[in-house]
Design a protein around this nucleic acid. Structure first.
Lengths: 198, 198, 198, 198
DNA sequence: TACTAAGCGAGACGGTACGTCAAGTCTTTAA
DNA sequence: TTAAAGACTTGACGTACCGTCTCGCTTAGTA
């Protein structure tokens, strides 16, 4: 039985909220721990008690805030499911959360531990969902079964991620269709199974 | 006619060399200007005299060091040209230069000016070459003409870049073929024009 | 031959000056390094580059500022020399420097190294002068030669120091005479040698 | 009639005991409230419920622990009484309590309130006893009646206090005699009244 | 051959944020 | 209501880098 004052759950929420707010309000990487603490009306020590670094807080804020932001609709029209998902990814990337992700990927370059956690807690769960959907397509006989599915996913989501991180082009929900147009014909079996047909 | 002592070209070379060496030797983003200066046996001021910031040095080191590292072979077998190029990209990303690129993309997230310069000096020139190759394919009638070519390029190079930046999978030259297998069938016109045929 | 930018002597002077000013302006021990740095228009690092701790700065400020504040007049009238010296000590203790000394003695209680330095650099030189004067009195046959001179000095200066540190009574220059009246008759040989006589 | 759980008297004793123990075991001023609480197996709040600050606890520990440690023998041999007292003071200063006193005097330099309390509760009661003894000597005609008795006491006890606080010489019981030798001849009336004579 | 102008290595400078530490307060459960 | 436990806010600490500055010295071109 734990004794002593329990962790202040409200403080935790205020901290994560302030992180998203601050990261979105300026260039990522320009947010300081002091600012977060002040914005959340919290002592710096309270942050360091529960997170090992600023980036760890940002990661928590990201994971917590986007757990259900990009759901996958599961129909038998796999391509359509993906395009729909791509659209929700685009919306997410264009939102303040997009800045949080950029900040995090940047920090992950210099901290392998953050990189691991980012992949485990943010990337992998989403990836798994996409992979499931793709495998379902293979099972249905609508997606080729001779492909490296990891490569397929990288090709499908690559455009969105690259534009977020490189910035050579804007991230637009409307590109979801263009991605489908470019990638899907090479992916599907070409069979005519009704709703899958185009 | 300029008087005074001329710029020490050797110092410039030592600086750019030390940058690559140091960035490769540890987690990117952990390299300090002081270390670079010390490693290059150079005063810090000499760096700031010629570059506005540490990241600018890194960018120069990158541009200088990769000017000819990923050449594009130009044949009429477009797919083959791309796969060959992808292989050279993989080799580059796996080399110390890969770390330099990661460092730079990380820094670009927080500094729009760096982002601009990175795109102008590193990304765009390569992109242009790829785009030219792709347009040539369209002209030859071997690549579909109804596609958003930017999206196609993002899909083709996305896997390599994503693996470099996210690290969910290793960057391997052998994946070049898998990328071709997954993406190309949706790109080409399916016509039988000889060398292009598969 | 030293290379690099030389130490900024003006900064050193500003720092020591600000220390005295700040220590005098409030309760000793309430002065922070940040305040000193700000008041001296100096980076905190500049302080830490040259002194290991705040207290070391305070000690330097004290030693530097009082090197000649309490001179000893050397006549053959030993008692008179001491009373004069006691008066200058009282004046020193009542000045801002008094606060600096209190701060320093306080810090010395918790840091043996500071205590050593304080004794070596502030206490001992003054003590030596007093001891010399007293020995001269012995040589002249006007001060008893059967006494522990260290004890005598502690008894002579004890009242001033105790009042500075304990604060049970004010430090007044006029007490110099009272101290002479109380202690001297037990110290001198009682002989009548002219100016020494009372 | 008070309800609720009664104050734990044992906790109070454990706290004061731990303070003395801890202050003696390291450089004074390095003891934290957390350590005291832990050593006394007590919650920090229990300390703050009964004392306003850490230093107040230390003061209580001092006053409580030394209430009868330096008694004054009252005979008609005033000098002898003082020397005996000086010896007990030396013993006290050399004991763990000496460290407590040093800590307290140090803290008193930066906190006038602590300084007041220290003087009221520790210094003044002892001082009053000494003063009484000295006045008795005046009444007996064995101590000069033309002296500032406060100055006399500062001169008599100064050596012990100075050595405790400055540390230029050790505090030794044997110095009590040397102090008597140096100071007393100037204090007494020189008359031959039997036991007082030397 | 001197003089002038700029570059050079070195390292101190003012400044900002960091992550740690202790003080004193608050909030829980148990007695 | 008090106690132990321990989380809380606050604010100073000492460190690390940044980008700028100043020193003595070097390396050209100009006079």
């Amino acid at each position: 039985m734990p004794s002593g004052r329990p962790r202040d759950e409200d403080a935790r929420i205020r901290i994560l909220g302030s992180v998203v707010e601050l990261v979105a309000s300026r260039a990522p990487g320009q947010v300081t721990i002091n600012e977060i603490a002040r914005a959340a009306s919290v002592g710096k020590q309270t942050i360091y008690r529960w997170w090992p670094s600023k980036t760890a807080v940002v990661l928590d804020a990201l994971v917590e805030g986007t757990m259900k932001a990009t759901p996958f609709r599961a129909t038998d029209d796999i391509r359509s499911d993906f395009e729909r998902h791509l659209r929700s990814v685009a919306v997410l990337f264009a939102s303040p959360t997009g800045s949080v992700i950029r900040e995090l990927v940047a920090d992950a370059q210099s901290d392998p531990q953050i990189a691991d956690e980012f992949r485990d807690r943010f990337w992998a769960p989403r990836r798994e969902l996409s992979l499931d959907r793709l495998r379902r397509g293979v099972d249905l006989g609508r997606v080729r079964d001779d492909l490296d599915l990891e490569v397929v996913l990288d090709a499908v989501y690559g455009p969105m991620w690259l534009r977020l991180l490189i910035g050579h082009l804007p991230v637009r929900a409307s590109d979801a269709t263009a991605i489908g147009d470019a990638v899907w014909p090479g992916i599907d079996t070409g069979g005519d199974f009704g709703p899958e047909t185009r």
